[in-house]
Design a protein around this nucleic acid. Structure first.
Length: 290
DNA sequence: CACCCGTGGTA
DNA sequence: TTACCAAGGGT
């Protein structure tokens, strides 16, 4: 479908798109997949250096699959949500086993890989293989909420109506649809931002429902504010950082010193072991998984 | 479906 | 400074 939004946004993208390495002509589907996983809940600026190291070291899924999963966790560094590293490693193994080492191109096969949900499957199919899928991430949801629904923010949980709306806006030609999808995301990332949108630079300000409504403030339920200090997440992060920064296995006391509350510390350590992020050795020491 | 899962930059 | 936010996914 072609709408009044299509051309202005496509043209805007041609002129203002960031020069990101996973969008380069020599990028591969594997590079796109790695970028999408790393970018989940993580800003571009923090992803860039890690992505470069990762692709240099493991230029194809088979290279990563041949290494212990702990190496993926170590290379993940401080990107956060390290289970993503584990799943990316498991994904590489699955790609080798099920797809001969090539990142699959169908949405269904992508969705079956660990750590890949509806968004990431659509993103990889679109950006790596130029297919036509509704790519609905936080940026796109916000842009469509403002542009089409006249609201500052989308609902907390994604609705079917949002999916239908996104699908209805997709250009019919697959390569154009793929370009449209990145373009809307980019618009959300650079112009139609969450906090201080730069509406003066917006290519579709004339068509924006939120603008026409006088930019009413968000009136729904309060948007979550997650405290971090003192949580199990912070504790897990401290514990895993010890293992990441160590050459090999570490003694228990080396973990004990980074968190004072023993109950919480043990709970977090057990959870890390259960998640497969930490390997408790027979001799009582702890290591990244092999 | 609500909650859990890291980390650091910014207003 | 505190609070929000950043290309979500799994359970």
């Amino acid at each position: 479908m072609s709408t009044a939004y299509t051309e202005p946004i496509l043209d805007w993208y041609d002129e203002h798109a960031r020069d990101l390495p996973w969008r380069a002509a020599d990028s591969t589907p594997w590079g796109v997949l790695v970028s999408e996983i790393m970018l989940q809940q993580t800003p571009v600026a923090r992803v860039l250096p890690v992505w470069r190291e990762w692709l240099e070291r493991w230029p194809a899924p088979a290279a990563l699959a041949a290494e212990p999963s702990g190496e993926a966790v170590r290379a993940w560094g401080r990107l956060g949500y390290p289970r993503r590293a584990l799943r990316l490693h498991a994904g590489a193994v699955a790609i080798v086993e099920r797809h001969g080492g090539d990142v699959p191109s169908s949405h269904e096969d992508l969705l079956a890989l660990p750590g890949i949900g509806a968004y990431t499957a659509a993103a990889v199919a679109s950006f790596a293989y130029r297919q036509r899928h509704a790519v609905l991430d936080t940026n796109v949801r916000r842009v469509l909420a403002r542009l089409c629904s006249g609201e500052e923010y989308p609902p907390k949980a994604q609705t079917k109506a949002e999916v239908r709306l996104a699908e209805s806006l997709l250009p019919l030609d697959p390569p154009t649809a793929a370009r449209w999808s990145v373009a809307v995301m980019e618009l959300g990332a650079l112009v139609c931002t969450a906090r201080t949108p730069r509406c003066v630079d917006c290519p579709v300000i004339a068509q924006c429902a939120w603008q026409h409504a006088g930019r009413p403030a968000y009136d729904g339920p309060p948007r979550r504010g997650q405290t971090y200090a003192g949580t199990d997440r912070q504790c897990r992060g401290r514990l895993l950082a010890v293992l990441r920064d160590a050459e090999g296995p570490v003694e228990k006391p080396a973990l004990d010193v980074v968190w004072s509350d023993p109950v919480q510390r043990e709970r977090a350590l057990d959870a890390l072991v259960a998640d497969g992020l930490v390997d408790p050795l027979e001799d009582g020491r702890y290591a990244l998984p092999s």
